[in-house]
Amino acid sequence: MSDVAAHASDASQSALPAWSLPKDAVDRIALPAEWPERVTREWALGGATGKGIRVCILDSGVDATHPLVGELESAVVISVGEDDEILASEDEEGDLSGHGTACAGIVRAVAPEADISSVRVLGANFTGSGAVLLAGLRYAVEQGFDVINMSLSTTKKPFASTLHELADSAYFKRTVLVASAHNMPVESYPWRFSSVISVGSHEESDPLAFFYNPNPPVEFFGRGVNVEVPWIGGRTLTVSGNSFATPHLSAICALILSKHPELTPFQLKSVLYLTATNVGGGT
């Protein structure tokens, strides 16, 4: 598939008008169709380790000293300055709740060679956490991570349009945003946006089992019940919730991308669909 990547790159540099495709330009965006006759799990992620893929954990911070997490590529804490500027400084506190460490541990277990970074948007105080969340997501999109794990959501409607803009921006910059769905009857974001990969929980114990939901807005179900995870204080806990199903899907995305780095978020979502346990991946 490396040819596809080369062609995609050429096409993006050829400065086509954004709104049309002139007749003489058709050849310039020709892409070789090197997809297998049948997209299987083996083709998608067999033997993959996540190597070379940068995964961002947008959460409460990550405790890198936990043996089940290991070294981080980077760790920053986000704050918003007096003029609404985004401030990202090195995070020396680690994880303030344990949740981000758990998410990082899940990614490490499923995609052991992925490069994990922590962008902390929680802690210190509750007030203003929404603005920090937005700033953190903007920062993460700007950093060009391959996958951003967002095991959180907001119910504040004023934030929805900015989140939507950021989710679309990530989508077009080939950053896959994987977001927790809400399992309570409330409107929350960004998981409802079609440009993200939204995740709910299934009860099976296989970390690589994931299901496609034919009745969106939740698009996929990952392992989210009774999951053993690292926690702060060097402990290992058993936890449940959509926020733990999300890093399972993030890690699966990292596995697929490490084997097929040319995939756009749109193509990746199609591969996820074709290889979902209830579609073509169960065999």
Binding site: H99, F126, S151, L152, T154, S180, T238, V239, S243
Partner: peptide, 23 residues
């Protein structure tokens, strides 16, 4: 802003944790 309840509040997400006694 801290602890598990703080996390649940800030992220608006439910959470279940078992065996937290020694943390």
């Amino acid at each position: 802003g801290k602890g598990i309840s703080g996390w649940v509040l800030a992220t608006r997400t439910p959470l279940v944790i078992e065996d937290v006694s020694n943390d």
